[in-house]
Simulated assay, not measured.
Amino acid sequence: MKLYYSPGACSLSPHIALHEAGLAHELVRVDLKAKKTEKGDDFTKINPKGQVPVLQLDSGELVTEGPVIVQMIADKAAGKNLAPANGSAERYKLQEWLNFITTELHKNFSPLFQPVIPDDVKNFFRDRIKGKFKYAESQLAGKDYLMGKQFTVADGYLFVMLKWAERTGMDLSEFKNLMALKDRVAARPNVKAALDMEAQAQKAA
């Protein structure tokens, strides 16, 4: 498999999932501004959306959209318990979390990364994001992870959003459950491996 990614982008979520799943994969760095791969290929010919992540399967098929990709990765390594079984009530709960993270957190971050957007508009989105994090905080009470005791691909995705909050100067220190989850996920060896690889790639770029 081949993962098209950009260091620090939302593609970190499937990158973490691949490490956690123990699946062999190749990484292809993408310059999202230039829409070029590290070899200079036109990325829009690979994904006309111009976005990462993209997962290329061994068959050559391309899969886009992070929440779909991480579930596919989890299903390819069912023994790792990165997602509950398809069709189970728990799987629908996982999908609920993935949808919440992608629509209520992920997309609300977009304006914070745009230099042309005024600070007052960014502050509006910061407040909105914080309200969404407050909900996640309440649901983590008494749990190690979003689904309970077991780490899943939803935790990897939420971790990336918590990293983005840190990157954009958002203070979430009042949310003790979220901060504990962030530390718990960051301490996982496979997460450290993904973060280290992306940090090295960023330095080399």
Rank of each mutant, 00 (worst) to 15 (best):
P118H: 09
L105I: 12
K163E: 15
D144R: 14
G50S: 07
R29T: 12
A194Q: 08
Q114P: 00
Q114V: 14
A83D: 08
L146T: 09
V116W: 12
L32Y: 08
Y92P: 03
H15F: 05
P84F: 08
A85F: 10
V160H: 03
R126F: 01
Q71R: 14
G156D: 11
Y157E: 04
M170S: 10
H19S: 00
H106L: 10
P7T: 09
G66E: 14
A78P: 11
R126K: 15
A24W: 00
L112Y: 04
K122L: 12
L55Q: 06
L158S: 08
L146S: 08
Q51I: 02
A180Y: 06
K203F: 04
L162G: 01
A165E: 10
Q56G: 06
V153S: 08
P115A: 05
Y92W: 14
N190H: 05
D144K: 15
P14H: 03
A77K: 03
T37V: 12
D42Q: 10
E38V: 14
R167I: 00
L94R: 01
E90A: 15
V68A: 15
P118N: 07
A21F: 01
P189K: 13
M170W: 09
P115Q: 03
N108K: 14
Q200W: 00
Y145A: 02
R184I: 10
D196M: 03
K80C: 02
F100M: 08
F43H: 12
A193C: 04
F43G: 02
F151M: 15
K39T: 15
T37N: 09
A194N: 06
A186N: 15
Q51T: 14
G148L: 04
K143C: 02
K130F: 05
G60R: 04
R29D: 02
N190R: 12
K76N: 14
L195P: 01
A89W: 02
T102C: 14
V63F: 07
D120T: 14
W97H: 13
T103L: 03
V52H: 06
G50C: 13
A165P: 11
R128T: 13
L27M: 10
M197H: 04
P48W: 05
F175K: 07
S59R: 07
G156K: 11
K33E: 15
E20W: 10
K93R: 14
K132E: 13
N190G: 15
L32G: 10
S13P: 08
S59I: 10
F43Y: 15
F125R: 04
M72C: 01
D155H: 05
A187D: 09
K130E: 12
W97M: 08
R126H: 06
A74P: 02
D119N: 13
A187L: 02
A17L: 06
L98K: 08
N81T: 07
Y4M: 04
N190S: 12
F159D: 03
R188E: 00
